[in-house]
Design a protein around this nucleic acid. Structure first.
Length: 734
DNA sequence: AGCACGCCGACT
DNA sequence: GTCGGCGTGCTC
């Protein structure tokens, strides 16, 4: 009797579907984790077998017949199958969606999981070939081309000489050449570089982690900028490789630059594969399969690489663990850090979270003993920490956002032929236009936000929905001819500085100046080789890059991160300031950091600059504890959006009603429901947005409530009137 | 999500 | 009389 298989399909349903296995296919050919084509509705879809069983809850006569599996061996190992099932439960995400986000597109579409191959043609020894092919000069040229290479010639090289596969086959049909297929081996560097000597702290970190090989332990490697975290990673990876294991290294989205890639490539003599957004579908499939088939020994990738298939995984490293890009913000909203920790727990291997500015979550886990803290406090060489200065903006008039004090300090540094880096978190010229006589403002027609004015080229744009229009020449309401540009963006800052420092080169880095790939690299080189420059940048510049010639860093709009509705805003500001401070200075120059603020007495800001990030984080944690916010409670956020604000509200109200009823029955009212309330940006691209928050002191009741709520079918009846999503452990409250 | 079914308005 | 709008229900 053919078995019944349980299949997950890529649709937004929180269920699997049962099928009867193909009776003509051996039973053993069906295994959990394999891809299988199944009839679904009136189309055929590819699904993942989650279970092979003998019984089904679904009426037997209604079960459809599955095809034979695509894979000879499961594409999801038992480990990955469980990780995906866990993730689906934890994040309340549809199973199929989870499995399919874990696969590269080419494999989702049913392509074979195999290593890239190359077709190689060799010439058969033929006498008098010139005679045989005398009427086919092109074929003769091809034959001679191939004959010239004793080991044969690959199809790619032949193609470069303007011969097609067809041409080769014609020769092959005449028995003049023959082909063989070879696996393309990944390029491997033969590195003889001597690894640098570790300092004491690095050595302790390295030894502690490697001593934990083959057991689960989560380490928080807290290393200030320049303390040599990367070298510790490299040593740990090296040790894992020496044990015949693979290593998984996760980096933030911005972190996988050619520089990082180059650094790893220079360091190791094993095949490395990279999984990042710059790859096309084929490259991604190749990298994935190289990992799966054990060819790649080190896998470096961004968020989704947490799903990389690795049979001999020995250690996981997460660089810049505090970085927000580890959280997927749409669809299946997972956090790669959480899943990586889960993965190492199930695999019984250590995991290292490295950063100069740990997330409060990780700090709390050190305090409660779940993570082990490893510290790197020594900077390489004689590099000194930067000094901080607060400029009290209440005491002086700012001209175009710049205080007199800042300008004069800038002059000092520039006079010494050093670089100055200015941070401002707004691109464009001015964040809003205002009519001085009737108070009209340049509001976006589709969002509850202003249109930002851009110059060169001149246009208005909404940074939330990308809506664009011309810059109005007069007030659309009262026809007053002169509108004032309010506030300061990177472009305006650039204009102002050009006037103030006419003989100094100014380099602006934001999404408007860095459009194409590689442009950032080019500009960074320009900065690295330059002197006496003013650099203007958004957050883009805060991450990962070091500028040895910068001796002064100023944050122009510190206050924008100080007072926000998002309870994580303060944490992010502290991380930004600390990371930014890390950009400045080198061994010989002591860096200076200036913060412009209207709130010079802000206690957390002062704690940060006087006592450092650790003290700041501790205080933030205390605030979180007092407010019973994460990480001292667990949060889930229902979001809804609809063109009609009532529809968005009604949907969430219905969820709240259902949830309230359920928690009454359960007795334990440990889950608090707050809302529905309007989202911080109430309207976006024409949609009204609402949210409903669920908070609980422990995870389990929250999880159970969410499961029960989502089981209620009536919720989905209303769901057509509003688009909705559920975010477990939301990182961004907007 | 996709797709079919189904029941009411403006058209060759 | 039909074409087609999108509300509702289902997918093993």
């Amino acid at each position: 009797l053919p078995p019944i298989i349980e299949v997950a399909i890529d649709i937004p349903l929180r269920q699997t579907f049962d099928y009867i296995a193909d009776p003509d296919t051996p039973t053993a050919a069906y295994q959990a984790g394999m891809r299988v084509p199944v009839p679904f509705g009136r189309k055929k879809r590819i699904g993942i077998i989650t279970q092979v069983k003998t019984k089904s809850d679904f009426p037997l006569n209604k079960l459809k017949k599955a095809d034979a599996p695509i894979d000879g061996t499961p594409i999801f190992s038992e480990e990955m199958l469980h990780l995906c099932l866990f993730a689906s439960e934890y994040y309340q995400a549809p199973v199929g969606e989870v499995f399919f986000t874990a696969l590269p597109k080419a494999l989702r579409e049913g392509k074979a999981c195999e290593l890239p191959q190359v077709r190689i043609w060799t010439a058969n020894p033929i006498d008098n070939v010139e005679q045989t092919l005398k009427r086919a000069p092109k074929q003769l040229r091809l034959y001679q081309l191939i004959r010239a290479q004793a080991n044969g010639l690959s199809q790619e090289v032949i193609a470069e000489q303007d011969f097609t596969l067809r041409d080769c086959q014609t020769l092959a049909d005449k028995d003049l050449i023959s082909q063989r297929v070879e696996i393309i081996e990944p390029e491997v560097n033969q590195n003889t570089n001597q690894a640098p000597v570790l300092n004491d702290e690095q050595a302790i970190a390295f030894e502690t982690v490697t001593a934990a090989f083959n057991t689960y332990q989560c380490f928080l490697l807290e290393g200030i900028t320049g303390s040599g975290k990367t070298e510790v990673y490299c040593r740990i990876v090296e040790a894992a490789l020496a044990q015949g294991k693979q290593a998984l290294v996760l980096v933030p989205e911005i972190g996988l630059t050619p520089q990082t890639v180059y650094r790893f490539r220079q360091r190791f003599s094993v095949p490395i594969c990279y999984l990042h957004s710059g790859l096309n579908d084929t490259e991604r499939k190749t990298a994935w399969c190289q990992a799966k088939l054990g060819q790649a020994r080190i896998i470096i990738g961004t968020r989704s690489a947490v799903f990389a298939p690795l049979n001999d995984l020995g250690v996981i490293i997460i660089d810049e663990e505090h970085d927000g890009s580890y959280k997927q913000q749409e669809g299946f909203r997972y956090h790669a850090r959480s899943l990586a920790i889960m993965r190492s727990f199930h695999q019984n291997i250590p995991i290292v979270l490295g950063t100069a500015t740990p997330s409060l979550e990780s700090f709390a886990n050190v305090e409660n003993g779940r993570y082990q803290l490893l510290k790197l406090n020594q900077r390489a060489g004689d590099a000194k920490p930067p000094t901080f200065d607060i400029i009290d903006c209440r005491k002086q008039r700012l001209t175009e956002g710049l205080s007199k004090n800042l300008v004069s300090v800038m002059r000092e540094h520039l006079a010494r032929d050093e670089q100055v880096l200015l941070f401002i978190n707004r691109r464009g010229y001015a964040p809003v236009l205002l009519c001085p006589s009737c108070a009209w403002m340049s509001d976006c027609p589709r969002c509850s936000a202003h249109l930002t004015m851009h110059q060169q080229p001149r246009y208005m744009q909404c940074h939330h929905c990308m809506h664009q229009c011309a810059v109005p020449t007069k007030c659309p309401r009262c026809e007053t001819p002169r509108l004032s540009a309010l506030g300061l963006g990177t472009q305006r800052l650039e204009t102002v500085l050009e006037k103030e420092f006419p003989d100094t080169q100014i380099v602006r880095i934001d999404r408007d100046t860095i459009r194409r790939k590689g442009e950032l690299e080019k500009t960074l080189d320009k900065i690295k080789n330059g002197r006496r420059q003013i650099l203007i940048g958004t957050q883009m510049l805060a991450k990962g890059h070091h500028f040895p010639n910068v001796s002064l860093v100023a944050i122009i709009d510190t206050d924008s991160g100080l007072f926000s509705s998002d309870f994580r805003a303060m944490e992010r500001t502290g991380q930004l300031v600390t990371q930014v401070a890390g950009r400045a200075g080198r061994e010989s120059i002591c860096g200076k950091v200036i913060l412009q603020t209207y709130h010079p007495d802000h206690p957390l800001l002062n704690l940060l600059i006087d006592n450092g990030y650790n003290a700041f984080a501790k205080a933030c944690l205390n605030d979180r504890r007092a407010a019973a916010l994460p990480p001292f409670s667990h949060m889930a956020l229902f979001r809804s959006q609809a063109q009609n604000p009532k529809a968005a509200n009604d949907f969430l109200q219905q969820i709240k009603d259902v949830a309230d009823n359920l928690s009454k029955d359960g007795g334990a009212d440990a889950v608090q429901l707050l809302g529905p309330v309007a989202a911080p940006i109430e309207k976006k691209a024409g949609f009204y947005r609402m949210q409903l928050m669920a908070l609980s002191s422990s995870r389990k009741p929250l999880q159970q409530l969410l499961s029960k709520v989502l089981e209620q079918k009536e919720i989905f009846a209303n769901a057509r009137q509003a688009r909705w999503s559920l975010d477990v452990d939301p990182m961004d409250m907007s």
